[in-house]
């Protein structure tokens, strides 16, 4: 059996044999077949193959298949809902865990921050009484690392002296409050502004 040299036509033959060729292609194939013995032979072979390969294939019971299909309203729900539920569950788990961490962690931080300024104010009050000088409690002092969780009674004598030293050094630090700078400028020597 020889092959037709027209590859395009040979490519159309299977579809022509099945009957799914478009109208234009079908007309071209028909015209070609009238003059090409090789394509006629190949077409006959294709029809034999199609018939042969379809032998023994049972006829499908459409009604039985349809009866087993899901109803349209419920068909997509499990498949669509499953991933959403999976994602949603993870999101909620994550949100709950994050919330717990924030609650516990935030509470601890709030408690520590709440205890530190109280102690500091107590300490600075004591220092102010001793030196008869007002001590400003500024954010800078709050962040200077001298705060502590316990009371003064927990500190040893050396610790208290070290704390007093630190408090003295704080007085030399510039205030972060812009208003407190004004009197410093006004008290320059010679009555002139620098």
């Amino acid at each position: 059996m020889t092959d037709c040299p027209d590859g395009l036509m040979r490519d159309l033959l299977p579809e022509y044999a099945v009957g799914v060729t478009g109208v234009d292609d079908a007309a071209r194939v028909s015209a070609h077949l009238a003059t090409c013995e090789a394509c006629r032979a190949e077409l006959a072979l294709l029809k034999q193959a199609r018939a042969g390969l379809s032998l023994g294939v049972p006829r499908m019971d459409v009604a039985a298949i349809v009866s087993a299909l899901p109803a349209p309203a419920t068909a997509s729900r499990p498949l669509r809902a499953a991933p959403r539920w999976t994602i949603g569950r993870h999101v909620w788990q994550f949100a709950t865990a994050a919330g717990l961490v924030l609650l516990v962690g935030g509470g601890l931080i709030w408690q520590r921050d709440r205890a530190a300024p109280t102690a500091l104010v107590a300490d600075t009050a004591a220092v102010a009484t001793a030196t008869e000088e007002p001590v400003a409690v500024t954010p800078a002092s709050a962040e200077s690392g001298i705060s502590f969780g316990g009371g003064l009674s927990d500190l040893s004598l050396e610790d208290l002296q070290a704390l007093l030293g630190q408090m003295d050094s704080l007085k030399t630090l510039p205030s972060t409050d812009p208003e407190s700078m004004t009197p410093v400028i006004a008290m320059n020597e010679g009555g002139t502004t620098p």
């Binding site: 379809s54 294939v57 049972p58 499908m60 019971d61 087993a68 299909l69 899901p70 068909a75 669509r80």
Partner: peptide
């Protein structure tokens, strides 16, 4: 689908296989 199943060497239970195919397809039709 039945012809294709036969071409894949399936001899027994082609009807069941085709039905399962449709059931899966319709479940995932969206």
């Amino acid at each position: 689908l039945a012809r294709y199943a036969a071409s894949q060497g399936v001899r027994d239970g082609i009807e069941e296989l085709v039905q399962d195919t449709f059931v899966r397809a319709f479940h995932a039709m969206e």
